[in-house]
C-alpha cells in the first residue's frame, strides 16, 4: 500500500443543526474571555505565574484571568488545560478517517461503543448525502503504522456487524493547511500557520 502518513487531524467540529446552542456558546464569551482565548490558544507562558503573565498581556489581573479560565472550563468552552503531546512525534504517525454507513436506529449506542475502541480519537455522527455519500458515522483512527490503522478498522468493522452496510478509510496524504487559530472568526485574517498542534 503506497500511502504516505501524516500528523493526525485536530478535532473537526461543526454543528449546523443546533444553531441555538452555537449562538449561546458564542454569546457566552465576552470581550475579556475572547482576549484570554486569543492570548492563550498557542500555549501558556511557562513561568511560575502564567495567569499573571497573560493578565499583563490582556490588561487584567492574574486573579481575573484564572477565574475566567476556570469559568470557561466549567462551561465547557475549555475542555482542559493540559500539556498537549504532539502524538505524531510520539509515534502515532498514521491516521485514517474511517466513515461508516450505520443503521440509524442503532447509531447512538454504536457511536458510544466505537468511541471507546482503542485508537479512536474523534467519533461523530454526521449527515448522509444520498446517493453518493451514505456514511453517517465518522471515527478517526490513530496508529503507529498504516497496518495498525487497518487492524483497528477491522476491529470496528467486526464490532458494527450487520448494523454496518458499507465503510471506507481515507488516509491523509498531505496536510495543506493547519492553523493555530482556534477561536473561530475572532481574527480570521490573522491566522498563523503552524506545523503541528492538537486540539
Amino acid at each position: 500500500m503506497s500511502v504516505s502518513i501524516c500528523p493526525s487531524s485536530s478535532a473537526p467540529t461543526g454543528d449546523e443543526k443546533n444553531h441555538e446552542a452555537l449562538d449561546r456558546g458564542v454569546q457566552g464569551l465576552d470581550a475579556a474571555d475572547r482576549a484570554i482565548v486569543l492570548a492563550t490558544q498557542a500555549g501558556l507562558p511557562l513561568v511560575p505565574d502564567p495567569w499573571g503573565a497573560v493578565g499583563r498581556e490582556v490588561g487584567m489581573s492574574g486573579e481575573a484571568v484564572l477565574e475566567r479560565m476556570q469559568a470557561m472550563q466549567a462551561s465547557g468552552v475549555i475542555r482542559r488545560v493540559a500539556a498537549v503531546p504532539n502524538h505524531y512525534r510520539l509515534g502515532y504517525v498514521a491516521n485514517g478517517m474511517t466513515v461508516w454507513d450505520v443503521d440509524d436506529a442503532q447509531i447512538a449506542r454504536l457511536g458510544r461503543e466505537v468511541a471507546a475502541i482503542e485508537g479512536v480519537s474523534h467519533c461523530y455522527r454526521r449527515p448522509r448525502h444520498l446517493p453518493h455519500w451514505p456514511y453517517n458515522l465518522f471515527a478517526m483512527l490513530h496508529g503507529h503504522s498504516v497496518d495498525e490503522v487497518e487492524r483497528q478498522a477491522a476491529v470496528l468493522r467486526e464490532h458494527l456487524g450487520e448494523a454496518c452496510r458499507d465503510h471506507r478509510i481515507l488516509y491523509s496524504s498531505r496536510i495543506l493547511k493547519k492553523t493555530g487559530l482556534r477561536l473561530a472568526g475572532a481574527r480570521p485574517d490573522a491566522a498563523s500557520t503552524d506545523t503541528e498542534r492538537r486540539g
Binding site: A11, P12, T13, G14, D15, E16, A21, L22, G25, V26, G28, L29, V37, T40, Q41, A42, G43, L44, L46, V47, P48, M69, M72, Q73, S75, G76, V77, I78, R79, R80, V81, A82, A83, V84, P85, N86, R89, L90, R126, R182, L183, A184, G185, A186, E196, R197, R198, G199
Partner: peptide
C-alpha cells in the same frame, strides 16, 4: 518549567495550555 520548555522545544509537546471546544467558541463545519 525547565522540562516543559525543553519538551516543547523538542516538539514532544505541541504546547502547554487550554484545549478549546470549537463548537462552543464559534461555528465550524467539516
Amino acid at each position: 518549567i525547565a522540562r516543559l520548555e525543553r519538551l516543547q522545544s523538542l516538539g514532544v509537546l505541541s504546547r502547554v495550555g487550554p484545549v478549546f471546544d470549537h463548537s462552543r467558541a464559534g461555528a465550524s463545519l467539516l
